[in-house]
């Protein structure tokens, strides 16, 4: 019992035993190999993948943002185009309307002129025919009147008045019977 104690305490703690070195080396080697071959590669791979994923996510977000911007610009352009088109159509329609009104006005004017001219012509023609008819009738009337004056004695006032009256009444009946006579 005592020799063992003496041997133990006699050992120099700074001088390693062979088994101490051996087991230390084995333990360190195992930890080193596991870390070197397995743990660190897995760790680095995960970190890289994560970085890649985050990078990819950022890129994707940027792409989507750009697409959205483009779509918005396109939409705004279309909207502006539509507005311009509407304004153009409206202006065109107004112009067309004004044109139509002007056309109608011109047409109405020419129609009215035509009607007036026609009426004028008609009036002229009627007047012409009336004058022709009147001229021929005045001759007949004058002859008729002269014969009556000549055929009657025109000595007293009574008689002369009667002649005139009769002439006038004859004239009246004549003019009412004239169309039959003229035809």
């Amino acid at each position: 019992m005592t020799p063992v104690n003496i041997v133990a305490s006699a050992e120099n703690p700074l001088l390693p035993a062979a088994y101490d070195i051996l087991w230390s080396a084995v333990c360190l080697l195992i930890v080193f190999l596991v870390v070197w071959k397995y743990v660190l590669p897995a760790f680095n791979k995960t970190l890289d993948e994560r970085a890649e994923r985050i990078q990819g996510g950022i890129e994707k977000a940027e792409k989507v943002q750009a697409e959205a911007d483009q779509a918005l610009a396109e939409y705004q352009k279309q909207l502006a185009d539509g507005r311009a088109e509407a304004a153009r159509l409206r202006a065109e329609a107004q112009e067309e309307g004004a044109q139509i009104i002007a056309d109608m006005k011109a047409q109405a004017h020419s129609e009215a002129d035509r009607i007036i001219a026609q009426a004028q012509t008609q009036i002229d023609a009627e007047r012409q025919s009336a004058m022709v008819q009147l001229r021929s009738e005045v001759g007949t009337l004058a002859t008729d009147l002269a014969s009556r004056i000549v055929g009657e004695s025109l000595t007293d006032d009574q008689r002369s008045a009667n002649v005139v009256d009769r002439f006038i009444s004859d004239l009246e009946s004549n003019s009412s019977a004239q169309p039959v006579k003229g035809a």
Partner: peptide
């Protein structure tokens, strides 16, 4: 495990 000199020496 490091209280015996072998391990510090190997490290």
């Amino acid at each position: 495990g490091t209280g015996v000199i072998g391990m510090p020496i190997v490290l």
